[in-house]
Write a protein that binds this DNA or RNA. Structure first.
Lengths: 255, 255
DNA sequence: CGACCTTTTGATTGGCGTCAAAATCTGTGG
DNA sequence: CCACAGATTTTGACGCCAATCAAAAGGTCG
């Protein structure tokens, strides 16, 4: 595991921009105040395990660049991917009753994160009530997405379920990771393999492949290894009963 | 829909006790302060729709007694139950981008709730940072349970999945609704029908029934209409890979 | 007591899993 | 620049878990 601490100054401008997911609620003139809470940067290479399930941890982080998957391994060797984190996402905040993260985290691509120690988060919440509200909103958005996924896996066919996932990730990548998304051609870098997709939806990679081939034949998507272009967003959204608003309009109830 | 506002004084002692889920973080001597935030009581009868999906709402509530289900209806007529709420649970806090609740709520049994207007919640968060932290913890516990359900539906067989659900609900009822749980015999009132269970797990009621019959034959459970007794908690927990600690040790990271 | 809901059972179907192997792609090192 | 090992995608044959359809039996409540 690569574990390099960022050599950049923690006050670098990029952090200020990137961490708006968490600090967007703070008055622009006061943004640099929040930089006191950021503890350090960390890089991970594709394939690195960022964290093992059921291990103690005393920090959370914002993902600056790259892609992480949050997952659980089961006794029988199968794996459920719970969440795909993209730049801007806040990760690692959940804890079980023993203070452990209830999932493992793996870097799918080279990734960069900025750490917030639990102690810093507590301080933030005390000193800046706006941050506490923002944390609540972030958690609520995650909860809604998680429930959508329940709906997906529980009630939809494999085809519907996959259509939804493709649209969700395609849309989120466009918004959260614009540097890998070509707005002219609509083609994007896509971080998951077909096996990863299967582990997200509770389906086998073989079955995922058959559906993808069908989507290609129907002219809905074009894709190759870690590349994706959605050719008919409307049709795919319709198949998966996907609502773009969920991605486009961020949840801002309290913050 | 019955919609009676509680005639009781909002400062009644029962409220103080029941709402510890939310206010347990507040110093005992100051608990009565929080009563200013409670807006009113409301009763619902079994079968009442408490809220329709995608309708605006400007409050959340604590469930005092009874049982609610939170669910989504799909175009094809199927239904996914997202969460089963028991006494003490805080409900209705999620909102989508338009401020709507992203699910419908139905009273499974006669239920009593205590309303908190959004405006009151905001005031609470401002004035009592401990409450903001508690809200975060409550959301985090829900998130963990939701992810567990993803794991259940996604990766487990119908038998494992059902064993998990039975153990989860049986354990939560024992803790959260002790008045319907007979500690001597182990028998409890169980609010869900086999069809409800199916809608929770993404399975049909027919298949649920076959598994239940098998569980009975194996001496794992005894049950009849809305009654349940788990005869072998260890075995059932083992089948469903259920961890009782998730229920017993409430999550208290920040509060 | 009667209407309705829930549970139970049987027969049949089909979607997705499993197993296996070939084809293709990727990235690395010589 | 090519070769090669390993990962990923693709394809085919077959099997099984859970869905579907249908109907009967039992329980609940007005």
């Amino acid at each position: 595991m690569s574990n390099n601490t960022c050599i950049k100054d923690a006050n670098c401008n990029e952090c200020t921009v990137r961490s708006r997911a968490l600090f967007g609620v703070v008055d622009n003139n006061n943004v640099r105040v929040t930089q006191n809470y950021r503890d350090k940067h960390r890089y991970f290479s594709a394939g690195d395990i960022v964290h093992f399930e059921q291990q103690p941890i005393d920090y959370a982080f914002t993902l600056y660049s790259g892609c992480l998957i949050l997952y659980n391994d089961l006794e029988n060797g199968s794996r459920q991917i719970l969440r795909v984190a993209l730049p801007g996402d806040f990760v690692g905040f959940s804890r079980n009753h023993r203070g452990e993260l209830p999932y493992s985290i793996k870097a799918v691509t080279d990734s960069r994160v900025c750490i917030f120690l639990d102690s810093s988060i507590k301080k933030m919440m005390q000193q800046q009530p706006e941050i506490a509200k923002r944390l609540i909103d972030l958690q609520l958005s995650d909860a809604v997405l998680c429930q959508q996924r329940l709906l997906n896996i529980g009630q939809k066919t494999a085809t519907q379920s996959l259509a939804y996932l493709i649209m969700e990730l395609y849309s989120r990548i466009r918004v959260q990771s614009p540097n890998v998304f070509d707005n002219k051609t609509g083609e994007t870098f896509f971080p998951l393999t077909q096996e990863d997709i299967g582990d997200t939806l509770g389906l086998t990679k073989v079955h995922i492949n058959r559906i993808i081939v069908a989507f290609k034949e129907q002219g809905l998507i074009a894709c190759s290894y870690k590349k994706l272009k959605v050719l008919d967003e409307d049709k795919l959204s319709d198949i998966g009963q996907f609502d773009i608003d969920l991605i486009n309009d961020p949840f801002r109830h309290f913050s």
